[in-house]
Deep mutational scan, measured.
Amino acid sequence: MLEGKVKWFNSEKGFGFIEVEGQDDVFVHFSAIQGEGFKTLEEGQAVSAEIVEGNRGPQAANVTKEA
């Protein structure tokens, strides 16, 4: 698991990027966000996630919002 913060997230398109210190930004799709209801993230929000290899490079999986 790694910790980072949301760089930006487009709720209409359902994707965005997470900033991780010392690494390239990581793509995040709404389907990777854990929880019930409408899955979205806010800019600057702290999150933790796993990194997996997607079709277009590294992407976030099992994204959870930090308190």
Rank of each mutant, 00 (worst) to 15 (best):
M1S: 10
M1R: 15
L2H: 10
L2T: 10
L2R: 11
E3F: 15
E3N: 15
E3Y: 15
E3K: 15
E3M: 15
E3D: 10
E3V: 15
E3A: 14
G4Q: 01
G4I: 05
G4F: 07
G4V: 04
G4E: 00
G4A: 06
K5C: 13
K5V: 12
K5R: 13
V6K: 01
V6D: 00
V6W: 04
V6L: 01
K7G: 02
K7E: 00
K7M: 03
K7F: 05
K7W: 05
W8K: 01
W8L: 00
W8Q: 00
W8E: 00
W8T: 00
W8D: 00
W8I: 02
W8N: 00
W8R: 00
F9K: 00
F9L: 00
N10M: 06
N10C: 11
N10W: 09
S11W: 11
S11F: 10
S11L: 09
S11D: 06
E12C: 15
E12P: 07
E12T: 13
E12S: 14
E12F: 13
E12A: 14
E12H: 14
K13Y: 08
K13R: 11
K13M: 09
K13V: 07
G14L: 03
G14I: 03
G14K: 01
F15C: 05
F15H: 05
F15L: 04
G16K: 01
G16S: 01
G16Q: 00
G16E: 01
F17K: 04
F17L: 05
F17D: 00
F17P: 00
F17M: 08
F17Q: 01
I18E: 00
I18P: 00
I18M: 04
I18A: 02
I18G: 00
I18V: 05
E19N: 08
E19F: 11
E19P: 02
E19G: 09
E19H: 11
V20M: 09
V20P: 01
V20W: 08
E21A: 11
E21W: 12
E21G: 08
E21H: 11
E21S: 10
G22L: 04
G22P: 02
G22R: 03
G22S: 05
Q23A: 10
Q23R: 14
Q23L: 13
Q23T: 09
D24L: 12
D24C: 14
D24S: 12
D24E: 12
D24I: 12
D24Q: 13
D24A: 14
D25I: 08
D25H: 07
D25F: 08
D25R: 06
D25K: 06
D25P: 08
V26N: 00
V26Q: 01
V26R: 01
V26M: 06
F27D: 01
F27S: 01
F27W: 05
F27G: 00
F27P: 00
V28Q: 02
V28Y: 03
V28W: 04
V28T: 03
V28N: 02
H29I: 06
H29G: 03
H29D: 03
H29A: 01
H29P: 02
H29M: 05
F30H: 07
F30L: 05
F30K: 06
F30T: 03
F30V: 06
F30W: 15
F30S: 04
F30E: 02
F30Y: 12
F30P: 01
S31L: 08
S31C: 09
S31H: 07
S31Q: 06
S31G: 07
A32E: 07
A32Y: 06
A32L: 03
I33G: 04
I33E: 04
I33Q: 03
I33N: 02
Q34T: 11
G35H: 07
G35P: 02
G35F: 08
G35C: 12
G35W: 09
G35R: 00
G35S: 09
G35Y: 08
E36A: 12
E36P: 11
E36G: 10
E36N: 11
G37C: 10
G37R: 03
G37Y: 05
G37A: 06
G37D: 05
F38N: 05
F38I: 06
F38M: 06
F38G: 04
F38D: 06
F38V: 06
K39A: 06
K39P: 05
K39C: 09
T40A: 07
T40P: 02
T40M: 09
T40K: 07
L41R: 01
L41T: 00
L41K: 01
L41M: 05
L41Q: 02
E42M: 13
E42I: 14
E42R: 14
E43A: 15
E43V: 15
E43G: 12
E43Y: 13
G44K: 05
G44V: 04
G44Y: 04
G44R: 05
G44S: 05
Q45S: 08
Q45L: 07
Q45C: 09
Q45K: 05
Q45D: 12
Q45T: 09
Q45I: 09
Q45N: 07
A46D: 07
A46K: 14
A46T: 12
V47S: 02
V47D: 01
V47Y: 03
V47T: 01
S48C: 14
S48G: 07
S48D: 04
S48P: 02
S48W: 15
S48L: 14
S48N: 10
A49L: 15
A49I: 15
A49E: 01
A49T: 11
E50W: 13
E50N: 12
E50S: 12
E50R: 13
I51Q: 04
I51H: 03
I51C: 08
I51G: 01
I51E: 02
I51K: 07
I51F: 06
I51Y: 08
I51N: 04
V52R: 10
V52I: 11
V52M: 09
V52W: 09
V52P: 01
E53G: 09
E53S: 12
E53D: 10
E53L: 14
E53Q: 15
E53I: 15
G54D: 05
G54I: 04
G54S: 10
G54F: 08
N55A: 14
N55W: 15
N55E: 12
N55M: 13
N55G: 11
N55Q: 13
R56V: 07
R56P: 07
R56H: 10
R56M: 09
R56T: 07
R56N: 09
G57M: 05
G57Q: 04
G57E: 01
G57W: 07
P58Q: 08
P58E: 04
P58R: 15
P58H: 08
P58I: 11
Q59T: 08
Q59W: 13
Q59K: 08
Q59C: 09
A60H: 02
A60E: 02
A60D: 02
A60P: 01
A60L: 04
A60T: 03
A61I: 14
A61C: 12
A61W: 10
N62G: 06
N62M: 11
N62S: 10
N62R: 13
N62D: 04
N62K: 13
N62F: 13
N62T: 10
V63T: 03
V63M: 03
V63P: 02
T64G: 06
T64P: 03
T64R: 15
T64A: 09
T64F: 13
E66F: 14
E66L: 15
E66Q: 15
A67T: 12
A67L: 12
A67H: 11
A67Y: 13
A67I: 12
